[in-house]
Nucleic acid binder design. Sequence first.
RNA 1: GCCGAUGUAGCUCAGAGGUAGAGCACUUCCUUGGUAAGGAAGAGGUCUCGGGUUCAAUUCCCGACAUCGGCUCCA
Length: 645
Amino acid sequence: MINVTLPDGSVRSYESPITPLEIATSISEGLARNVLAAKVDDQIADLTSPLKKDCHLALLKFDDVEGKKTMWHSSAHLMAEALESLYPGVKFGIGPAIDGGFYYDIDCGEHTISEKDFGAIEKKMLELASTKSPYVRKEISKREAIAYFKEKGDEYKLELLEDLEDGTITFYTQGGFTDLCKGPHIPNTGFIKAAKILKVAGAYWRGDEKRKQLTRLYGITFPKQKMLTEHMHLLEEAAKRDHRKLGKALELFAFSQNVGQGLPLWLPKGAELRERLEQFLKKAQVAAGYDPVVTPHIGSKKLYETSGHYEKYGEDSFQPIKTPDQDEEFLLKPMNCPHHCEIYKTKPRSYKELPVRFAEFGTVYRYEQSGELHGLTRVRAFTQDDAHIFCRADQVEEEFKKVIDLVLYVFKALDFKEFTAQISLRDKTDKEKYIGSEENWNKAEAAIINAAKEKGLQTVVEYGEAAFYGPKLDFMVKDALSRSWQLGTIQVDYNLPERFDLTYIGSDNQKHRPVMIHRAPFGSMERFVAVLIEHCGGQFPLWLTPNQAAVIPVSEKYNDFAQKLSKLLKNYEIRALVDDRNEKVGRKIRDNELNKIPYMLVVGEKEMQTNTYQVRKQGKGDLGTFSLDAFAEIINNDINSSIGD
RNA sequence: GCCGAUGUAGCUCAGAGGUAGAGCACUUCCUUGGUAAGGAAGAGGUCUCGGGUUCAAUUCCCGACAUCGGCUCCA
């Protein structure tokens, strides 16, 4: 007999061996029909693998994240089976489950798979699924496994096998398809009731751009057709929030082929919004002890040779600017830090004045690969809300914490609640690619980890993601299609102070090396605005939005009165437009609703007589009648609740 | 940079080997209105660009450029 503890704490006794599926059946038929995998003492397992000793058991359904992942992983195998049947001779790389489904990397030789083929693949998958073929696990010797894939001619699987130890290798077979796989899987293909191939893309074998590019097919499956329909609807809704779409519709920014790829043009409304964001941060930075500085858009090539960036990135950047003097070369500024280092060096510094904090909204230029450009999130000219803090080693942690506070303040004002703080540390196995002493790195990494912990951040640690000159803390936010982008960033740098020979005089009257912290709460204005647009679906916080209110005269007779009102609103620091088009009220309301204008004031005879206004809130409808003072108060309350003042 | 797809009016999209269409937006006129689309007329296109095939190419083929989805990269 073994004792099995279920998630609710209850303990059941069974004759050993017994499978999780049998236990599910013993609980209820319905459960047995819906259960996909088992979690045995924190290990996900097949429902059919026997339990031989006391354990904790959770039965996973599609609602459970692990259940979903198991089903999607099994679906990758099903897609592979379909592909093999449609395109004989296709070879397989890896096929994992991911957050929104699964993919499989395949090599289909001469044949190219395109969107036209998706329908046939989906159909084949469902056809194979309907046979309810069980996923059969088999432990196999390495020799046999190699023989199998040699016979099949699949060099990718053979390469994967090289890294596996004999005795740990398992195969899974469903229907006519066998794959190298450690599992687990759902009991049989019958659970897959709806399948959709989502996209096709190239992907380098093992993520190495020097190796062959395989075809990556992305898909998703569901246990119910209705769930797929809902999912596709959700994706469509998300696509409507795409900042590229909204940026165009709301006339915030544009690109022109005549100007160049990845070089954004800020339109008046977008520039106004950006300006407001800058003012907001500048104010916060003055309060936090930053000194504004301004530096040019180009700098001597030598400056970047000193910083080490030319050596590392020069080849792939915008090329040096030539001058009449042959010996001179300049670079478009790819970063602000070297300039700020030179500002630091303009005079001797005492330990008493540290930390000094130089802040600049500095526009930088980087030649990003053409395939990487993406709306405003990845461009070739962008403005960083940059600042560099020069401090003593003993001040690093304190300064770091202050910057975290600033980032959190910014995120709160813009209602960014969902973000992850990513701590990027050195690659544990390859410390060669980093500049700086072991001791300094250890200190910096510890300082970041401590600061993040003390500020109560939810963090993920990524090894190997650090910059070459120091560890960093990045604030990651997802876009409408759940792609993750880095916004705020804080980076410790022991390298540049060294390279620029920065010093300060300590209390001991000796020269010491300051530590530098790079930081940007927004990251870049471009990317931040992009993510902000998607985050709020184009409906910006009231304090930011270009037009806070629309004055709508009911007929042309009241246009003058509407103009007068908008001037009055200006006195209250309320930004209002007058919609004096020759259209009916209903039409004007509709258009201003669609343009996401937060408030509307309809004016006609009644308003002119009484000096009170009917206020309508975007998306909410009529709020009632207000005096101008009362309306201004609504707006001010709204603003204060987001940025305080 | 690599793999795949796409490129027609300001926007969203139809279309076909015989030099182009819809809806919205725009302009003008009528209408002067009370809370999510009033009516009529008009204007708007080197069908991304460059080659080739053809009597004829925006359509078929090749190339470039740009955009989109990924991969790699991201100071």
